[in-house]
Design a protein around this nucleic acid. Structure first.
Lengths: 211, 211
DNA sequence: TAGATTGTTAATCGATTAACAATC
DNA sequence: TAGATTGTTAATCGATTAACAATC
């Protein structure tokens, strides 16, 4: 592949660009310069141009960037132009919160089922999507093409469930469990450790107090 | 203050150290070297020593680090040795998920109330903690010492609510709303944009496909 | 004391910013 | 054409890794 290796820092900025461009698009803005966008986003214009140029020349000298075009292109880079089937393991509060967040659907993430061990949740549906029991998981994966699984369950269960998922073809894990997973390197893991972010907030509050 | 400016990258690694040390502590491990810890965590020993030395010499040559001591010290750095009153604005699924996550309590984060606009939630309690109506928010803040607020509400409401919070003494905002907040610089904002993390996952899946 | 391992300095690597020629 | 703004190279800045003297 001629593709340069894109740094993690660049990738993690793309969703934010995408969000701002979406807002501009909604506001009916047709074009924007890196300089104007940089003021809105509180980053340097240099960084914007440098970031975008990792993927090709999306702009035009003397004009700037076409909002609609750039929005679409970043969407493609992020893989939002195709659909991704996903499931949620753990239908507790957090799992249900994710299941109810219909906006994912608009970005192409299609929720196919939730799973839980709690028999009281058997047969419950959320936005019409059923909660199944974890013992049906393996069968379900064999019969459905599931790309992504969100893990919203206690860390004690997370590791064994992750193994089942990976053994049955799941390629990406959105991990909310409070533990790191070690999985084959062709499996993509995105960790969301909520309590880590609360601790960072707490640290920064303490710093403020010192000033 | 003699305190050097600590980089954001270092801070964001602290909660992970804290988690691993907690696990070691639970497993009854008394001491650990940077080298052993580096193997567990898949980072370099150099980085661990460099990171910790930002805050002082917690180790001992020839011995390593005392797990209990280091755990406690990192806890102090993160401000987990004191308690932080917090509230949740938006008692939907995500707000309730956070409210039910009792582990925060163990780290010193004390949930005092939830707020919502939905009258059907009036009087509902979660783990004994009441949901109040947002129009009582200002009064509540005046009569209670609230340091942190989690924003788990639609972005359309987030900005105005954030202003009320800040005007009434809230110092830290844990922002789950899908928008950036621009607030006075003495207010600490920690953004948790869940959909951004899902997009990163999606990007990395696409990269895998190309290999 | 000898061995182990830190704390810390120096070297490397990578990411951000500045500058400007290319070009719409 | 002149002005604006990109794409891209070069300069700076910061973070990570390597190395080793200090020391328990």
């Amino acid at each position: 592949m001629e593709q340069r290796k894109i740094s993690r820092a660049v990738i993690s900025r793309l969703p934010r660009y995408y969000r701002y461009l979406g807002d501009l698009l909604e506001a009916g803005v047709e074009r924007i310069s890196s300089s104007d966008l940089s003021k809105k986003m509180h980053v340097t214009a240099s960084q914007i141009r440098q970031d975008l140029n990792n993927f090709g020349g999306f702009g035009q000298q003397g004009y700037g960037y076409n909002v609609k075009y750039l929005y679409t292109e970043i969407g493609k880079i992020l893989g939002l132009d195709r659909s991704h089937n996903f499931i949620i393991i753990g239908a507790g509060n957090l799992g249900q919160a994710l299941a109810n967040y219909a906006s994912f659907e608009r970005s192409g993430f299609i929720l196919k089922s939730l799973f839980d061990v709690n028999p009281r949740l058997e047969g419950v549906t959320i936005r019409g999507i059923p909660v199944r029991m974890v013992d049906e998981l393996k069968d379900f994966l064999k019969n459905n093409d599931i790309e992504i699984a969100a893990l919203t369950l206690p860390k004690s269960k997370a590791i064994e469930v992750a193994d089942i998922l990976v053994d049955n073809g799941v390629k990406g894990i959105w991990n909310f469990a409070h533990t790191d997973l070690s999985l084959p390197k062709d499996v993509v893991v995105e960790n969301v450790h909520l309590s880590d972010t609360l601790m960072k907030l707490s640290y920064n509050l303490c710093q403020q107090d010192k000033e």
